[in-house]
Simulated assay, not measured.
Amino acid sequence: MTTRTLTGGCQCGRIRYTAQVDPAEAYLCHCKMCRRATGGVSVAYVNTPHDTVTWEREPDWYQSSAIAHRPFCAHCGTPLGFAFLEGGNLDITVGSFDDPTPFRPSKNYAVESMLTAWTDVRHLPGTTSGENDAVVKRWQAAGMEPPE
């Protein structure tokens, strides 16, 4: 296990954190509850003990089931993770890290709910954000460059 200290937070910047995680131990959850909670076809998490996460500002939490709750930002809606009500660990959404590139998936969870059509999309045509003129113009009109 190679632990690294990484930072992250929500889209609007209201919620920020520092976490000690092992990027080689990330995983994809395919359960229906996580799909609904994030709006994604799956969600990438990394699991770490609660005491290895330092919040600059405590996130908002909601109880998503009888056994779990989830941290998020009530201002921008960014899902930040998952935790059992009883337990010492927290799953942090990989997409909420400032630099998610070190993370590598090590397993799939809840494969009975996996949407297999979405597991490998490399064969589909793709475009970069910069190739979408309508979006680029909107960002430029707002005085900014398109985000990556």
Rank of each mutant, 00 (worst) to 15 (best):
T3S: 13
T5V: 12
G9E: 04
Q11P: 04
G13Q: 12
G13F: 14
R14P: 03
R14G: 15
I15Y: 09
R16A: 10
R16I: 09
T18M: 03
A19Y: 01
Q20G: 09
V21S: 07
V21A: 02
V21E: 03
D22I: 02
P23K: 03
C29K: 08
C29N: 13
C29E: 11
M33D: 14
C34F: 15
R36N: 11
R36D: 09
R36W: 14
A37G: 15
T38M: 09
G39N: 08
S42I: 00
A44C: 06
Y45D: 05
Y45N: 05
N47S: 11
H50V: 08
D51E: 09
V53L: 02
T54S: 04
E56H: 12
R57K: 06
D60K: 00
D60F: 01
Y62S: 10
Y62M: 10
Q63E: 15
S64C: 03
A66H: 11
A74W: 13
H75E: 11
C76R: 10
G77H: 08
T78W: 15
T78H: 08
G81I: 10
F82A: 07
A83F: 04
L85Q: 01
E86Q: 15
G87C: 07
I92N: 02
G95M: 09
F97C: 10
D99N: 02
F103T: 06
N108Q: 02
L115W: 00
T119V: 12
T119C: 13
L124Y: 13
L124W: 15
T127F: 03
T128P: 01
T128Y: 06
G130F: 02
D133L: 05
V136K: 02
K137W: 07
W139Y: 15
Q140A: 13
A141W: 04
A142F: 04
P146W: 04
E148M: 13
E148W: 02
E148P: 07
E148K: 14
E148S: 11
